[in-house]
Design a protein around this nucleic acid. Sequence first.
DNA 1: ATTATTTATGCTATCGGTTGCATTCTTAAA
DNA 2: TTTAAGAATGCAACCGATAGCATAAATAAT
Lengths: 343, 343
Amino acid sequence: MYSEKEVTIYDIAKRLDLSATTVSRGLKDNPAISKKTKKRITDVAVEMGYRFNTFASNLRSKRTNTIGVIIPRMNSSFMSDVLAGMEKVANEANYNLIISQSLESADKEAVNIKTMFNNRVDGLMVSVAYNTNGVSQFEMLLQKGVPVLFFDRTLDHPMCPGIIIDNQKSGYLATRHLLDQGCKNIIHITGNQERNVYSERQKGYESALAEAGIELNKDQTFVTMLDEQAGIDCAEQILKMSPLPDGVFVDNDNCAANCMMKLMDSGIKIPEDIAFIGFNNDPISKIIRPALSTISYPGVEMGQIAARKLISHLNGQQNINSTNSIVLRSELIVRDSSLCNRL
Amino acid sequence: MYSEKEVTIYDIAKRLDLSATTVSRGLKDNPAISKKTKKRITDVAVEMGYRFNTFASNLRSKRTNTIGVIIPRMNSSFMSDVLAGMEKVANEANYNLIISQSLESADKEAVNIKTMFNNRVDGLMVSVAYNTNGVSQFEMLLQKGVPVLFFDRTLDHPMCPGIIIDNQKSGYLATRHLLDQGCKNIIHITGNQERNVYSERQKGYESALAEAGIELNKDQTFVTMLDEQAGIDCAEQILKMSPLPDGVFVDNDNCAANCMMKLMDSGIKIPEDIAFIGFNNDPISKIIRPALSTISYPGVEMGQIAARKLISHLNGQQNINSTNSIVLRSELIVRDSSLCNRL
DNA sequence: ATTATTTATGCTATCGGTTGCATTCTTAAA
DNA sequence: TTTAAGAATGCAACCGATAGCATAAATAAT
């Protein structure tokens, strides 16, 4: 079913009466080869339909120039930004990216890690799945000296730095903003508390409440998947509460938007009855009405910094292990959904 | 900088006083190897920290069990669905996916194709970039017998089937719906007419107008990038028109949403002044108010069918070249943004 | 013209699984 | 007990590029 045999550097060499070595070097633009010979080589290569064999090359050279990326999902605007940032930096440094999704499953994540491992990635960048437990699955990589770096959803490991934002402060700022608007009864819709991003935000939420002298009520923290359905489910739960909350802080804009809309469909007025604030500054937050207040999240920058950090480690310019974490700036963005000014 | 030497099947073989062949087969769960030996092999492999070398394997066996996917961007809900569908089918058939983005650039797309080619993908699934021109960049793959399949944004090639929806019919249905609501002055915001998806929808738009006896006005077709900014720009252009249009059909929900919101911010009432309909049934269409009418687009299904088709070709069960295209069902979804009933 | 340099090219072993074919060891049938 | 068939394992060549070291060719210096 497949056509003629593959053309190799040996075929090119024979045709030009050169050695395979020279052809290899010529194709790689090695300075040891004369311009004239290089041209002859590349011309014949094209003419004969030669294609570079990555496997043979990797097998011999033991370098792949490939960086693995494992993320929960790639359908959010945030992740898309992160990937764009990573890809730009990686390409410029002549690295390829292999991207795979865990789909929020720790099992699939473990399989992905193994695949990356077998594919000899030079390094790995990971934002862990919703239910990932422990860091043991990364040990095989680390033992072989393959650097692992976490971003956004990080794990704690002495060898692996994390690129994050200050989630606790962000959670504090969001909650504090609602308090400043006069809210006294604030719900926090968050995710698995094993994940740094969510537990930190919860801490920020709690500290803002404490500061305002408001007693923490565990019923006001909803742990969910933070997806669309969760937003709708939470809205239904909120509608059953009495008294109704007067503020809602959601750790994800998309979830927040769905929750808000469901409440509005049920006659609740936003922000008059309930003030809302989300997280991520997803494009959706600007489009819905009332526009959703949120926390900015520098996705592109996060991707760039992660990739740059990893690559500089790979190039031996900087040891990754000495870094614990890099914290990026994020900030409160106030829009109509939280401007109720009840004071 | 890196630790001890790699463990190979030879090391395992030596340790167990077996041949490398047996070890290789044992690890591959080959039926020729006894259960007992298999267990000894896998145990020692784990103990010694062996990792499978994909490159050596691919080099020798000339199969990679990898399928390449090139898409314009992965930040839309539609693409995310497509990829999820592809990944599911591919995984079940024991294939890996390498995904890369062209970021709507034909140049980057060409580079991606070449990378896929060098990485010896067994097959390729592509949705082409905004400005891709011609099909010559795929010839090298086809000449080597590597099947190429297009989905959504397709190109015309005798060897490459396309998985699509009936864009012309969809464009007709959308326009027809606006006409049925009494619109007489309908704008079509579309993309590069070189892309089948957009030119077909334009054809549908034109045929619906013709059927209604409305003369086509070229000024009413806006060719744009269909992104958020385009939505806003179009809104500004529309505001300058006199008379204002009474209906807008946008080939992308996200773009439509941004356009609609901008118009509403300027005091236009939707759907009373201008009726809106989008395309894709993106989650955003359900969340904005008024909810956006749209055309459903079966992303997951499209991904599954594409992957299934390609894999059955790779397995020799079905020749892909005999198929010209597969057309999936799509349908009109009516929501509030178009319900003006001016008749 | 001769030696010292620089530049260009070649030789050969190697990376680590895989595969067709051959061989040895079991178990079943005669 | 002998033979046939089947199960289990081994041999050796191979996939295609690469790197260290050696050599040849071209140029510069003496």
